[in-house]
């Protein structure tokens, strides 16, 4: 800190604008996320991926559940829906089934997708529904005050485990692979370019795609565990993360201060729900099977 003014020492071209702004409801800014929270960074990557993939924005829908990350649906200037707690995937499944042209992105947190919505997640992955699931994992229930979540690593101090968490936690990437996801990747908010590229890849991929993004929660997780602020966590991610594409997901467990294995772990082809439905119905009904018509393309 050495300057006392906030003057920008040059002219900004008049046509310059922040590339994220066209994708956000700017009347709702500033957002509610804490200083140092990484959710905004993941939104940046998401918008860059949308820009680079040249997706038709009228055909992209964002579905979120409840929680800090659940607010993304409210801030995104796309067709978006903020569902009840844990039900982002069921809603997205319905949306996709009724209008298969839509690119449905489920953008939610670890508490929403894996605690109350855990069952929905594994069954959507099993069916290989054509959904793009982005899970921002801050390793705690942030909005309700930092309680132990299914993803909280052991030895961590949380609001409900003041003497340290002793329960084993979920390894989200292994869970997604075992349940049958077509694409599984993990990045942290430090890996912005890789994350944006990964998001771009899942827009082009058919089937159930899952990206876990580790994000700092300075207010509740890092503060209780004396891990510093958001910037310290970003430096920690930079230090301990190892990119290992194709690593065995069962060996990618997260610990409190150990190595974080990031990368693209699974990229496989499996018939998705629509293909299976069509194949089965054509086999049993023959000519009597007609594709359902999508009648809401103009609305």
């Amino acid at each position: 800190m050495n300057e006392t003014t906030l003057e920008i020492p040059y002219e900004i071209p008049a046509d310059a604008h922040n590339p994220v702004e066209p994708f956000l409801r700017m009347d709702r800014m500033p957002h509610i996320w804490c200083p140092g929270c990484g959710i905004g960074t993941t939104v940046n990557c998401f918008t860059r991926a949308l820009l680079d993939s040249k997706a038709d924005l009228d055909k992209v829908a964002v579905v979120s559940g409840i929680g800090c990350t659940g607010r993304v649906a409210g801030y995104a200037r796309l067709d978006s829906f903020h569902t009840t707690h844990g039900r982002a995937i069921p809603f997205a499944t319905g949306l996709k089934l009724s209008n298969p042209e839509l690119q449905v992105v489920v953008y939610s947190g670890d508490g929403d997708l894996f605690a109350i919505g855990g069952n929905h997640f594994i069954h959507a992955a099993r069916r290989n529904m054509d959904l793009k699931v982005i899970c921002v994992n801050n390793l705690t229930y942030a909005m309700t005050g930092g309680q132990t979540a299914p993803t909280t690593p052991s030895k961590v101090i949380s609001a409900t485990n003041p003497y340290g968490v002793f329960e084993p936690s979920f390894n989200l990437v292994a869970l997604a692979e075992a349940a049958g996801a077509s694409y599984v990747a993990r990045w942290t908010t430090y890996h912005v370019k890789q994350l944006a590229r990964s998001m771009e890849e899942i827009f082009k991929k058919k089937g159930f795609c899952f990206i876990e993004v580790l994000s700092p929660c300075p207010t509740l997780y890092q503060r209780r565990n004396k891990m510093g602020d958001g910037l310290d966590t970003m430096k920690f991610y930079k230090e301990v993360s190892k990119v290992r594409h194709g690593a065995r997901t069962s060996e990618c467990e997260l610990t409190k201060s150990g190595e974080i294995v990031v990368g693209k772990f699974v990229d496989r082809e499996r018939p998705d729900y629509f293909e299976l439905l069509r194949a089965q119905m054509t086999e049993s009904l023959g000519d009597r099977y007609a594709e359902p018509e999508v009648s809401c393309s103009e609305c």
């Binding site: 050495n2 020492p9 310059a16 922040n18 590339p19 996320w33 940046n44 370019k193």
Partner: peptide, 26 residues
């Protein structure tokens, strides 16, 4: 605050990191 404007390459990495959508580079 901008301390060495002449070094900026316009890579927009600051814009990708900023969680508050407050900065961008071009």
């Amino acid at each position: 605050n901008i301390v060495s404007a002449e070094k900026c390459s316009g890579c927009d990495l600051c814009g990708m990191y900023c969680p508050d959508f407050a900065i961008f580079g071009a």
